[in-house]
Amino acid sequence: MMADSMLPVYARAVLKTLPVGSRTSPELPQRSIDRSVPLEPVAYAGFAHVVEQRLYDVVHPGYMHVLGFPLSMQLLSDPEVPLPMLGMVHIHNRVDVLSPARLGEVVDFHVELAGPFEHAKGTTIEVHVTAQVEGRPVMDEVSTYLAKGKKLPGARARAQVPHAEFTAPQPSALWRLDPIIGQRYAQVSGDFNPIHLNGLAAKGFGFSRQIAHGMYTASRALSAMDPRLESYRWDVSFAKPILLPGTAGYALTDGRRHGASRSAVFDPKSGKPHVLTQVAHLEG
């Protein structure tokens, strides 16, 4: 299970919050990680079922994110990264699905960091993950993490994804989410961040209750959109987290199921967005 490999990472992340040494350099360490991971049917099936994806040969891109995640965290928790990992917020995730990755194949991941970049609300770091199967590119991913309120002098400028005005549509589905979804997604993703597992930890980070994993919500939305395309861009913006237990609304806001489309997961009462997703054709 991935849980084991994540523990030292979190430990290091906690240590990093201590005011030891100086991390004034805005430069990121020039490191990358390469790792090969087999797409194992039984392990994948657990993920697929939690995010309500039908199980067949082609792997949900959310699972590719999951496989790259411990490697990303290993890089982010490096003491030389000039921002604290704990408390960083995953604000945006873009995956280019380049060709289908299939169960039984072995994926070669290459993970590196980019940034830091300026952001209106702090500083961001990007994790770039590329995945290949026998040299065939299957996925490029850019995950953007925001350190809120932290400004670094040497951070580079970066065009921000503009915040589109959001008007909540009528939900076409209501997701009733029990707190157990936090544990279930943690089990299949290896992301045991305590804010998803218990209310007290969540309070420590300023949430009134435990919150759903953003990538759980995003992956489940993608399952609902069910793109039947050879290659596509899966672009996700994270807004307000979903408090557990809770009910979220889901609706397709543009396009059609199985094709290029947009969807929203939102609070059906306040109308505020949780996760906005776009599935688009890749250019060229």
């Binding site: 049917p41 039984v42 099936a45 657990g46 079922h49 039908r54 199980l55 067949y56």
Partner: peptide, 14 residues
């Protein structure tokens, strides 16, 4: 064995 984690819905759809 191979279909240990496949649900009835998964298999029927396929």
């Amino acid at each position: 064995k191979q279909y240990a984690k496949a649900t009835n819905l998964d298999m029927l759809t396929s």
